[in-house]
Nucleic acid binder design. Structure first.
Lengths: 159, 159
DNA sequence: TTGGAATAAGATAAAGAGATCCGAATCGCC
DNA sequence: GGCGATTCGGATCTCTTTATCTTATTCCAA
């Protein structure tokens, strides 16, 4: 569901998001804070910079920072350049002819499942994560049974 | 989101589901019909047999068949023995302390996303796939914009 | 201009998934 | 019991992912 690389990328991005949109952070600092192998993290951050999610600054005082406002960076922006999400495109059962009209037995089922997953990834931003966390801390302990739909509902209200 | 192995397993199981709950099918037959490398498929089917999802019969006329009623086999039953779903357990950001009360910034977000995905996998059965397909064929062409939630809703009505 | 500090980039090693092959064991049938 | 068909299990190989290392390249400050 999420490769090691994708998980590392999320860790780094959340760290940078909390760090602010202006300050540069070095690879060593991020690696130490997120418990990720430094050299490997460097590779991942390079890819994210190439994808336009991060900005890098060489030389003294340099490092990485988010390239735009947190509300404009989705989880998909972070994961897509690193993982092979194209696994979804094309029929799961390998049929050449498979669409909404002429569908393989799994088409509708898988479209529903993957659609919700990909949709959540596409619409959840780093800003949402920060917002929801603050909100969650306020209502902490109110619900014994946490409501999985709450986050998704709050996304829709954002408009 | 779904490894090659998991996809192959789904292909084979859907094929066997359509074949009926009583007839045995050989590896060569299944591999040819689903376009999966025969030797590798044999390994996968062995694992599924060990997991109790399939029953195998050696000798002439032998092969594999589903071990129980289609309504009792979920997509999770098929995928779980083959993939490392334990990637979800534990904090995505690597924090030791991370639960509903004391959560990392990603905890609630990821719980919502993965909860929907895993829930769908756990509750969708091979029978659902057959049912929904029949239903979809009946209403074919009625909706230009297919409703992703329809399948999930129909699952709940099953009780 | 020089030196220190940082990222960029490529080569490479280790680990795991994906895929293949072969011999052994098992079953039905003759 | 012997034969053919089939699954089972282990050994092996390849490819991708993960991780490390080394060498440039770039920037800032003195």
């Amino acid at each position: 569901m999420l490769t090691q690389t994708g998980e590392y990328a999320l860790r780094a991005m959340v760290y940078l998001a909390r760090k602010g949109e202006n300050a540069y952070s070095g690879v060593k600092e991020i690696a130490a804070a997120t418990d990720v192998p430094p050299n490997y993290l460097a590779k991942i951050l390079q890819q994210l910079a190439r994808a336009g999610v991060l900005e890098s600054q060489k030389g003294f005082g340099g490092g990485f920072k988010v390239a735009r406002k947190l509300s404009k960076i989705t989880l998909m922006d972070i994961i897509d350049p690193l993982e092979r999400i194209e696994k979804f495109k094309g029929c799961v059962l390998g049929q050449r002819l498979c669409n909404d009209e002429v569908a393989c037995p799994l088409h509708h089922t898988w479209k529903a499942i993957s659609g919700q997953y990909l949709g959540a990834l596409r619409e959840t931003t780093l800003q949402d994560i920060a917002d929801f966390r603050r909100k969650a801390e306020q209502v902490e302990g109110a619900d014994a049974q946490p409501n999985y739909g709450e986050l998704l509902a709050s996304r829709e209200k954002r408009g």
